[in-house]
C-alpha cells in the first residue's frame, strides 16, 4: 500500500472496523511510514480541537422568542382532526 492509498482510506481507519483487511494494511503501512503517522496524528488533533470547543447554550432572548412562537402555534391548533381550518396566509413568526 502506498502513501496515496493510505491518504484515501485513512479517514475510514479513524473510526471503522480496525480488524478489516484494508485497515490491517493501513496499520502496517503506518508502522513503517513516519509521514503517514504524522498526517494521521494531525487529522486526529484537528478533530480533538473542534471537539474541545465549548458547547453554546440557547441565548435567553432566543429561548423566550421560541416559546412565544410555540405558544402561538399551539393555541392556533384546535383539535388534530380539525386542523385544516388553519389559515393559509397566517404568519406565526414574530
Amino acid at each position: 500500500m502506498k502513501c496515496e492509498d493510505v491518504y484515501l482510506h485513512i479517514c475510514d481507519h479513524l473510526d471503522e472496523d480496525i480488524s478489516s483487511p484494508r485497515c490491517r494494511m493501513i496499520r502496517e503501512h503506518l508502522d513503517a511510514c513516519p509521514n503517514c503517522q504524522a498526517y494521521l496524528s494531525s487529522l486526529k488533533k484537528t478533530i480533538t480541537l473542534y471537539k474541545a470547543i465549548p458547547e453554546p447554550s440557547v441565548p435567553a432572548h432566543a429561548h423566550k422568542e421560541l416559546f412565544k412562537t410555540i405558544s402561538v402555534l399551539t393555541s392556533h391548533r384546535a383539535t388534530p382532526v380539525k386542523r385544516k381550518a388553519r389559515s393559509k396566509g397566517t404568519t406565526l413568526r414574530h
Binding site: C3, S41, T48
Partner: peptide, 20 residues
Amino acid sequence: AHLPHDDTQHPVLATSAGDP
C-alpha cells in the same frame, strides 16, 4: 494524493491525539 511529505519535519506531532 494531497498527502504532505514533510510532516516529519515537525516533531511536535506526537502519535496521541489527546483528550478534548
